[in-house]
Structures are given as structure tokens and as C-alpha cells.
């Protein structure tokens, strides 16, 4: 079972990001990502949490600060999986080919990758939809394909940028549960970005609350409820208590962001 360890996957020190427009998205962000943990970055929109995630993925350059990766192989192509807010599928390719993409780009043949792609699709419950095209799927199913694609290469680190924000509540709860199950099976380190207090508490064992203008860490909370967590956790007093703490931290972060 996956639990946070003391080993650090990546650490950000004094990371800042200034866009060409002059906007300071991040200022002096200090953050350690620990192996095996489910870390959530929680904050109001515009607090730079997505920017932090993109910098971790190497999709964006930090303007200042250092990011260290104790294990260099954790940055190799295919070692990081990324799930965007939109499913970001290729509409001209069927479900199999979409999930096969990371392998195709790594030069792995379809036959060689087939077993792993199919396993990833089975893992998100889409084993029977390999031949379907994205437009034939519901929003939740598209997001599942996106998750399967990110997990197919068995990444060390899975980065998720508000992946369920556009989904209805029923699909979101179901995907929350499935995501936790996958995380427990595989022991992948997850960094999850959301603006939902409830989602952050349900999923993570560590929550970093961020404040805006510029984005930096405001508070850190630990959710020590053991996994597996299920629907009964959603209605427990413990969950409510954690949510209250996270809400208060978020309110504080927003006030700090406004006064800055």
C-alpha cells in the first residue's frame, strides 16, 4: 500500500515565475514532493498552482529558484504523467491510439506496447472501448482515457491539473474513488491541483494551501485518515473536521492574497 515516505522526489526552492506580461504567478515557492504521497495543491484561482505543476513537469521554465530531482531518472520521458483539466485527447485517434501515444513517441511498437496500453485501459474500466473515438464517449470516460494514457507508462510522478473540475458530481466522486484505488495499487506519487476543499481532503494525505499574487505556500495540512477511503469517509465527522480546517486555511490564504 502506498504511503508517504521520507524520500524526496523533487524539491522546489525559492521558485518564482514571472510572465512576459509582468504578472507574477509564483513568488518564492518552497515545496517538497515526497515519494508515494498524494499531495494536493489547494488554492483560489490565480494562485499559481497550475503554474507550479507545469514547472514540475518541465512544461514551463521557472524565472527564479531551483528545482532539484534527487533521482535523475524521475525526469526521463515517460517518468512523468500529466493530466490536464480537459481530457486533451486526439479526436482523430481511437481510445487505444490515444493511450498508446506515450509509447509511440518513445518509439515503442504497437505490438510491444499493446499489453500495457490494454492494462491501463482495463485499469480505468475502459477495456471494452479501445476502438471507440473520443467523440463517442462521455466527459467522464474521456477523462478516464486521459488518466489511462498518463498511467500507461507507469510514471514515477503523476501530475493532475484540476482534472475533474469540469465533470458532474457523480462522475467526479466515482473518478475520485477509482483514482485512489489506482494510486494505492501502483504507489505512484501524485501531485493534484484543485480548488475544491472537499476533493482535496478526500484524496490526499497532504494538502498544501497556496495564496495568490504571487503564489506561495500559505499553510500545510496533513490528512492522516488511513486508506482505503470510501464513500463512508465522505460523510464521517472526521472528514468534516478536516474540511473545516482546510476551509479555514483557504479563507486565510485568500485574505493574505488580497492584502498582499
Amino acid at each position: 500500500m502506498a504511503q508517504a515516505s521520507a524520500v524526496t522526489v523533487a524539491s522546489l526552492r525559492g521558485v518564482a515565475k514571472r510572465f512576459a506580461s509582468g504578472t507574477r504567478a509564483l513568488g518564492d515557492l518552497n515545496l517538497d514532493v515526497r515519494q508515494g504521497e498524494f499531495l494536493t495543491l489547494l488554492g483560489p484561482s490565480g494562485c499559481g498552482k497550475s503554474t507550479a505543476l507545469r514547472i514540475l513537469a518541465g512544461l514551463s521554465e521557472a524565472s527564479d529558484g531551483v528545482i532539484t530531482w534527487p533521482d535523475a531518472s524521475a525526469r526521463a520521458a515517460g517518468a512523468i504523467g500529466f493530466v490536464f483539466q480537459e481530457p486533451t485527447l486526439m479526436p482523430w485517434a481511437n481510445v487505444f491510439d490515444n493511450a498508446y501515444l506515450p509509447f509511440r513517441l518513445a518509439g515503442t511498437s504497437r505490438a510491444q506496447a499493446a499489453a500495457r496500453v490494454n492494462a491501463a485501459l482495463d485499469g480505468v474500466g475502459l477495456g471494452d472501448f479501445a476502438d471507440a473515438y473520443p467523440r463517442e464517449l462521455s466527459g467522464g470516460m474521456k477523462m478516464r482515457v486521459s488518466i489511462a494514457r498518463a498511467l500507461a507508462t507507469q510514471p514515477h510522478l503523476l501530475l493532475m491539473d484540476e482534472p475533474f473540475a469540469a465533470l458532474d458530481e457523480i462522475s467526479r466522486f466515482k473518478l475520485n474513488n477509482d483514482l485512489l484505488a489506482l494510486w494505492q495499487q501502483r504507489g505512484t506519487t501524485v501531485v493534484f491541483v484543485t480548488h475544491s476543499v472537499f476533493e482535496s481532503v478526500y484524496l490526499s494525505n497532504r494538502i498544501v494551501v497556496m495564496t495568490s499574487r504571487p503564489g506561495r505556500v500559505f499553510a500545510e495540512l496533513t490528512v492522516d485518515t488511513p486508506y482505503p477511503r470510501s464513500e463512508s469517509f465522505r460523510t464521517s465527522a472526521e472528514y468534516v473536521a478536516h474540511c473545516r480546517r482546510a476551509s479555514q486555511a483557504l479563507v486565510g490564504a485568500m485574505a493574505a492574497g488580497e492584502s498582499a
Partner: peptide, 21 residues
Amino acid sequence: DRNLLALFSLYGASRWRILVN
């Protein structure tokens, strides 16, 4: 799609791959 472009670069795709695929 900008995000697909980001995804391709995340997986280390060459310019040629990005063009063709």
C-alpha cells in the same frame, strides 16, 4: 490544442513527430 502540444513535448517528441502525429 496547446495542451496536446505540451503533452507531446512532455514525452520528448521530435519536431517531425509533432508535425506528423
